[in-house]
Design a protein around this nucleic acid. Sequence first.
DNA 1: GTCTATATTGTGATAGAC
DNA 2: GTCTATCACAATATAGAC
Lengths: 228, 228
Amino acid sequence: MIKPARKRKPVRSPTAAKIPGREAATEQRILAAARAVFLRHGTAGARMQEIAAEAGVNQALLHYYFRTKERLSAAVFQQVASRIFPALVQTLGAETSLDGKINHLIAIYLDNLSQNLFVPGYLISELHHHPERVQQLLSGAIGADPQIVMPALLKTLERQINERVRDGTMRPIKPQQFVINLISLCIFPFAARPMLSIVFGMNDAAFMRFIEQRKKELPEFFRGALRP
Amino acid sequence: MIKPARKRKPVRSPTAAKIPGREAATEQRILAAARAVFLRHGTAGARMQEIAAEAGVNQALLHYYFRTKERLSAAVFQQVASRIFPALVQTLGAETSLDGKINHLIAIYLDNLSQNLFVPGYLISELHHHPERVQQLLSGAIGADPQIVMPALLKTLERQINERVRDGTMRPIKPQQFVINLISLCIFPFAARPMLSIVFGMNDAAFMRFIEQRKKELPEFFRGALRP
DNA sequence: GTCTATATTGTGATAGAC
DNA sequence: GTCTATCACAATATAGAC
């Protein structure tokens, strides 16, 4: 049997509302609620009803503003990603010293993630389950095509590393390994927090103490690993 | 309106079938298919129909063997977790040298995960979205209560670290930080693989080359970080 | 813009024949 | 043990009143 094409709602653009008032506030409330729910349960596990309840509005309003669950989840993903990735590109791409970059990235990430504990688990989960859908979103979040930006960034790092190797103050390492080692040490403890909580018996307070200690030790640990 | 309680199927135990034949093979096929689908899509995103198709059987048969999606996903999680966590406990808890443990853990994990690329993303995702449900499963996978095993393991590590600190061949580090740094460097690249693929433009072959290089460099990198 | 009510489809689960 | 057919309910999405 042939299914008749589903009727489609005409395109609206409530975001472009001219009079900023209760409407804009509502849209933001919905987005904030969606963010909370999607971060806890993931896109597949989240329920529109729960988002509506958390936002204190009706479920129909979610569709009024964002049309589909798909679009709402995309909006959340992009918002979250755009708070994480640009910092990486800007910090590592800057024209500061290598040690300065290491210190800065560790400080930024540990601080930021301490206040957004669910972000790493959420991002890894989404990227893992929908890598195809996520590619364009990630480009949007960075604000440029990573395939253009990253090679330049890696070149810069490679040059800085080579200088230090010639000085004899660092041993050789590929820039990719450098970057991935650094962000592994920063991000993984947050992504694996539920596991650490169980395995090491850490409650929330213990985890925060653990991170505070890490802020102090990680720069030295990382630089130590690079000594010749 | 009062909903009548859903009728429940009487408890069966097909796993305990006395005659191992086609039945056992089917159960294993279903489990393997479920593993593949749950790893790709996560528990919430997976569809029983897709698992049935992948196993080459009917959807009703999944319920015959595992009763509910919940139980099937629990079986998969425990199977996956039991291949990852015991290695950690056994390796770090052994009475070998600290350097030996580092080398062994890196080798084991990078090899193992290279052949199970989806495992880290899957585990982090499940732990993140269902930490409460997962606690008991994890205990089952380790084969003992982590709250008993881990403190002993950390004590052992602490003693070994202290010895080396007195020797002057290592600088002080808390055993928890030691363990988490080590597994961060091993596991994160796999968990973040979809992101690395996009950000660094790595295809599958490039990623495997990246890991191969890592096998060689990571032990030295990590030991370097611990030098005084 | 926001609501209630309802349509429509998806999905886990069960009954019952073989 | 395995299948087909179907149920029951959950969940997304839409219509239309206000």
